[in-house]
Design a protein around this nucleic acid. Structure first.
Lengths: 230, 230
DNA sequence: CCTACCGATCGGTAGG
DNA sequence: CCTACCGATCGGTAGG
């Protein structure tokens, strides 16, 4: 750390370099690093020391921001759910009254796949696969967020059920559809730059969306000719 | 086999009580206890000491049977896959040439749900959710078993696809169907004895099978006889 | 399979 | 947020 001789009037503790000045920024850095490591190696297998090292902190310093390791896990999940809800709301806000249930389901599925597999997609997988490591109290927090997220799905599935395009009780359909999508985290790999890939785990998210809709609703993709205008 | 007071000629080290005499039995006991604990609390969160205590051993004794903790995990998974394959083979052997693809898929799905959620169903969930904790070499062992298990599904799905009952590329259909089924481990709870349950996570495995088939193939259950009252 | 034990790691804290 | 540290736990082993 290089600082010009502090002016005689400088107060408070000396600041570090420009990038490290903001406390909230450091906290966010910890959450992001934790999300990455929890996703890669699992919660139990990741030490708080590793997380600290990733952001250039000393071993004990994460506990200045988070009382316990568990609180860091909770923060990762909350961050993930808030992002997912925000994206879903934005996507749904774009459709008008006239959009068919099929198209609505497509938007919901595509958004969920993006949250699970797209850029910055460490948070939600951690939420899905590290649920066990939360305390009972923490689970309630996440459950509330998750319920809010899932609420948007029920009327869409109900409409498809009523029109005979979903031969399955709606609550079970929701659980199994989420299962099929959430499980992609286990096998999906983004398509490389080498042009076409025929391996099923290397398709695009759009192709995966088509496949999911075909499987669930029995309707081959009526893909919109181009992406809808903004 | 009960032995009276040992004859004067008895050889070898003294035996323990009747139940503990068989070495293979003790090894199996460790595997079963490990499966239960790994399923309940996760691999990393389970100590070898706990597993030992569950079968009445001292803390270091599991390492007489298994070189490392990881080997115990592998043994749990191998046991689970062997059971699953055996059950699936038995179930498939019962169908003749005339069985429709729909019925074949029903048998496969029902068997998978049984393996995931039925009695003694700790092994496969451990395999699904603790994959990360295996070494690369161990993964190969399990991958081979898993490939064998999944082989039976492809022709059935292909037949459904060819007849227009599966609007989805077969390899992706297989992955997503397994996802929907495997995910049930996260939410399914066996129905209690209190008669009917309306909560979706409390249905019977038969009802769950119907729901899955309806969702994937778009065909309402051609279930024999008993339909719920209105 | 038990007894006795070790080195390493880890979550977390006191104090500044 | 760093320094310095602690108590607990854990996987694993030697030797019988």
């Amino acid at each position: 750390m290089r600082e010009a001789a502090p002016s005689p009037r400088a107060r408070g503790r000396p600041r570090k370099t420009e990038d490290e000045r903001d406390d909230g920024n450091r906290r966010q850095a910890l959450i992001a690093a934790a999300a990455r490591l929890f996703h890669q190696k699992g919660y139990d297998a990741t030490s708080t020391r590793e997380i600290a090292a990733q952001v250039g902190m000393q071993p004990g310093s994460p506990f200045y921001h988070f009382g316990q390791k568990q609180d860091l896990l909770l923060a990762v999940m909350v961050e993930g759910m808030q992002q997912a809800i925000a994206r879903q709301n934005a996507a749904c806000a774009r459709w008008g009254e006239q959009v068919s249930p099929h198209e609505r389901l497509r938007v919901l599925v595509r958004n969920q796949l993006d949250v699970l597999l797209g850029p910055d997609s460490d948070f939600i997988p951690v939420m899905l696969y590290e649920w066990r490591s939360l305390s009972a109290e923490q689970r309630q927090t996440i459950t509330q967020l998750k319920d809010g997220y899932e609420t948007a799905w029920t009327p869409v599935l109900q409409a498809l059920h009523d029109s005979g395009h979903l031969q399955c009780p709606v609550p079970l359909a929701r659980l199994m559809i989420f299962g099929a999508l959430n499980w992609t985290v286990q096998w999906y790999r983004a398509p490389g730059p080498q042009a076409r890939h025929t391996r099923p785990h290397r398709v695009s998210l759009d192709a995966l969306t088509d496949a999911a809709l075909g499987l669930f609703t029995g309707v081959a993709p009526p893909r919109p000719a181009s992406s809808p205008p903004a």
